[in-house]
């Protein structure tokens, strides 16, 4: 590090408004994607509460079902589902950039890598639904 960096940074500090992420659609999409993680966390907490209710007995399971039908819980879960799907789609779309596969020295095209992820998503979802229902 050169010695003048500290002063240099102090001189060139640009002021960024706190709502910078509302200025462009792409900034907003980025922040929404990042905030989807809050709903990912909510979803796992919700599933843990479900597992706990099931383990506690049939009555607790019934009251969990009643609680999950309350309007505010349904609303939170609807928003959470939308954002979790958004998380999944954006995650699988950038997967080809993170995962470089080579077959016989040639790079597997990005569309194929993304396609494999979507295929895996469909398979996992079908298996989970089949086990649960």
């Amino acid at each position: 590090m050169t010695e003048y960096t500290g002063l240099y940074q102090r001189l060139y500090r640009t002021r960024v408004p706190i709502l910078w992420w509302l200025r462009r659609r792409s900034y907003l999409a980025f922040v929404v994607r990042e905030l989807s993680s809050v709903f990912v966390a909510w979803a796992v907490v919700f599933l843990l509460l479900l597992a706990h209710a099931v383990a506690s007995g049939p009555r607790q399971y019934q009251s969990f079902l009643a609680w999950s039908a309350a309007p505010w819980v349904l609303t939170v879960n609807a928003v959470a589902l939308a954002l979790v799907v958004y998380h999944a789609v954006t995650w699988f779309n950038v997967a080809p950039q993170a995962l470089v596969l080579r077959v016989r020295g040639r790079r597997v095209p990005a569309r194929v890598v993304a396609g494999l992820h979507y295929g895996l998503w469909a398979l996992v979802s079908a298996v989970v639904a089949w086990i649960v229902i």
């Binding site: 796992v44 919700f46 599933l47 609807a78 979790v84 998380h87 699988f92 979802s125 229902i133």
Partner: peptide
């Protein structure tokens, strides 16, 4: 979470 959470939340939520 991308693989597992959407289907579980769709069903139970």
């Amino acid at each position: 979470s991308a693989l597992l959470v959407p289907v579980l939340l769709l069903l139970f939520g």
